[in-house]
């Protein structure tokens, strides 16, 4: 399913809607080139889940964890947001080697991974959503959404 994103407001609305469809244990893969809007999407998603801290780019740190405080998120068993970035990884084993599996497996955690195309193993997860960010004209983007 393709969604037209014309501006930041559209992206925020999409993120809010998307957040409502998530449940604890879900894994979301974000695929798209530099500047496509992946991190910005996560910032809006985190806000929708009631994360109080500012979400920044996880490129260097690789993985960051945040606490969800939104009551509607609790209803769907979401207590934590894990934000990971595979951009700097040369081998998918690296992420598993740093204990990423423990975070992803947690039933009360929603895990969002940027550059998810570098981690094919994610697709094996029982609830995996994939969002592909494509460039349109100027600031516009198209998000191609698929679920498993």
């Amino acid at each position: 399913m393709k969604i037209a994103i014309n501006n930041l407001d559209d992206l925020r609305k999409f993120a809010v809607d998307f957040a409502l469809r998530l449940r604890g244990g879900d894994v979301v893969g974000l695929i798209g080139d530099l500047g496509a809007g992946k991190t910005t999407f996560v910032q809006f998603l985190a806000a929708a889940l009631g994360v109080q801290e500012e979400v920044k780019s996880p490129t260097f740190v690789l993985v960051r964890e945040y606490i969800a405080t939104e009551p509607t998120a609790f209803e769907r068993n979401i207590r934590k947001l894990v934000h990971a970035d595979a951009y700097r990884l040369e081998d998918e084993d690296e992420l598993w080697a740093i204990g990423f599996a423990d975070l992803v497996d947690d039933a009360e955690t929603v895990t969002v991974v940027e550059w998810a195309d570098r981690l094919p193993a994610l697709k094996d997860r029982s609830t995996y959503h994939e969002l592909r960010f494509e460039f349109d004209i100027g600031e516009k983007r198209i998000i191609d959404s698929s679920e498993r």
Partner: peptide, 17 residues
């Protein structure tokens, strides 16, 4: 503080581009 990318990261990503 930065709201999104760090300066070093900005160097790395623009270099990549």
């Amino acid at each position: 503080a930065t709201l999104d990318d760090a300066a070093g990261e900005a160097f790395d990503k623009t270099a990549k581009l």
